[in-house]
């Protein structure tokens, strides 16, 4: 008999104040799935960055939208979907993700934002974007070997 944990689905209003509680739920769920605190923290941060982007860019900070997060453990990886019904991600945005330009000699030019997608692509093993039935869906996968080191 194969026992597979049911996927976890969470929805929040598109308000920054709701992102923290959502992140805590995601982290707790990852720990319950047997992932280490470190990996659970990295998945939490990736989800937080994705949800921040949905609120800021897809919903343009309008607080009457909904952001859904779905977490599912597969055999060899954890799959996380972050979905919203706001503006679509510009075509090719994920392939244009670059590391922040950090030059300590030019402090005025240091980036104060625009780092979220870069961070989550670094923390996750695979990230892709789909437009599905009027929704933006960001799909993030993190390999789990022997419990997620």
């Amino acid at each position: 008999m194969i026992v597979r944990p049911a996927p976890l689905s969470l929805s929040i209003a598109s308000k920054m104040a709701c992102v923290g509680p959502l992140g805590r739920e995601v982290r707790a769920a990852c720990v319950d799935l047997g992932l280490t605190e470190r990996v659970a923290g990295e998945i939490e941060l990736s989800v937080v960055e994705a949800v921040n982007n949905a609120i800021e860019h897809a919903y343009q900070l309008a607080e009457d939208g909904v952001v859904e997060v779905r977490l599912e453990r597969r055999r060899s990886h954890l799959r996380v979907e972050v979905a919203d019904r706001g503006r679509r991600l510009p075509a090719g945005a994920l392939s244009r993700v670059r590391p922040p330009v950090v030059d300590g000699r030019d402090r005025a030019a240091l980036p104060e934002g625009g780092m979220g997608l870069f961070i989550l692509t670094q923390l996750m093993d695979a990230v892709r974007y789909q437009r599905r039935a009027g929704k933006n869906v960001l799909i993030m996968e993190r390999r789990i070997d022997g419990g997620g080191r």
């Binding site: 923290g41 939490e44 960055e49 921040n52 402090r107 240091l110 980036p111 934002g113 780092m115 979220g116």
Partner: peptide, 22 residues
């Protein structure tokens, strides 16, 4: 602090810009 996201980091970056020197 157990978790900081990129907006929190951005706040620190803004602060270091205000300082006389990093």
């Amino acid at each position: 602090v157990t978790i900081m996201d990129s907006t929190g980091l951005g706040a620190l970056v803004a602060a270091v810009k205000v300082a006389d020197s990093a």
